[in-house]
Amino acid sequence: MPALADAFLKNRADNLPPDVFQEFIVPPFFQHISIFKDSKSVRILGGRGCGKTMFLRFFCHGSTFSAHRENIGDEEFSNLGLYFRPDTGFCSLMTAEWLQKPKDGFAFSHYLTLSLVAEICQAIKNIDAAENLAGGSLNLSKARLGQTLVRQLELPEPTIEALQLLIEQRMADFDLWVRNPDQCELPRFVHFSTILTALANDLANHSPRLDALAFRVFVDEFENLLPRQQEIVCDAIKHPSQRFAVHIAHKRDAVTDLKTSREERIVELHDIRTIDLESNLVKDNDFEVLAAELFLFRIYQANGVVACPSFRPELLHDPVHLPYRLTEGCWR
């Protein structure tokens, strides 16, 4: 049955669109963890292929504001997820040897800022296109931007459209400068903490429904960043704000020192909480339950016959349905 076998080939989140809501199966341990009860950062650990990327993207704007969800409440704006995975080859150019210190650190902060603002612009498009917001449309693209963004980014107009066009241009110019630092004009560096905070405030001013708006930045493959770049991310983890926090994911044991740009270190529980995906999955009978659901779900996606009355694929993707899935009569 080649068609049925093909259903099991799609096993990398990298090959999926930003909206993974209908692909992600909420694991049983979701009943024991919390991601956003406070602004504290979270570290996601696990081996290769355990689902770290899929886990992160489930919490990002593509899935949060998925067209497949119903009645998305305004509380989702307090945790607007932004996904960032470093371009390893490009980031490896931002060294003190190539760009000269301290421009290497300024350059990475600038690159991260441009990447995240581009993500926010895409999130605004997704939210404006959503027809399933419980409170109705917000028209975020009509938000007026304040003086911090206008002056620091040199925006020609205080609009989201102008911001998106400018970010595309700045990213292209920045790419050329990093690859040809002696032949291109030095960029005007900006920092993500200032820009994201200002943008969040401007969007919050657009509607009372966005008063609690906050960005949650998910940095995937943290171990692939250079040491100086890891320190910059750790600085943000050490000093979260009301408007944004940074979370990271990396392979277990791939990062042994979460050092900031000073001599401070990120401290477990005080600065960050760790969620080990594999350790959580081996508790109780959780892995067997999830594996069974995934197996049946892949057959269902391939239009195969699933002769299991307890299996309800429409209940796999939302944490609110976990109590049913974990009842004795369902699987256990």
Rank of each mutant, 00 (worst) to 15 (best):
E131R: 10
L213M: 09
G51W: 06
S39D: 12
S66N: 05
N180W: 14
R228C: 11
F108S: 06
L322S: 00
V178D: 09
A143T: 04
S115A: 11
F30L: 03
C330F: 09
R57A: 03
R312L: 11
I160K: 08
D74G: 10
S193G: 14
I44T: 03
C60R: 04
Y300D: 08
L203K: 10
P240D: 09
I237D: 07
A249K: 04
P28G: 02
L99Q: 07
S279I: 09
P28L: 07
P227G: 02
D14H: 11
E23I: 13
E314G: 08
P240E: 10
Q301L: 15
G81K: 00
C234V: 02
P313Y: 12
S63L: 07
E168K: 01
D128L: 08
I299P: 03
D182R: 13
M171I: 08
S92P: 06
C60A: 08
L138H: 02
E223R: 01
F36W: 05
F29I: 03
H250M: 01
I237W: 02
L153G: 06
I160E: 07
F29H: 05
A249E: 01
S261R: 11
D235N: 09
Q22H: 07
G49M: 11
R151Q: 14
P323H: 07
V42D: 00
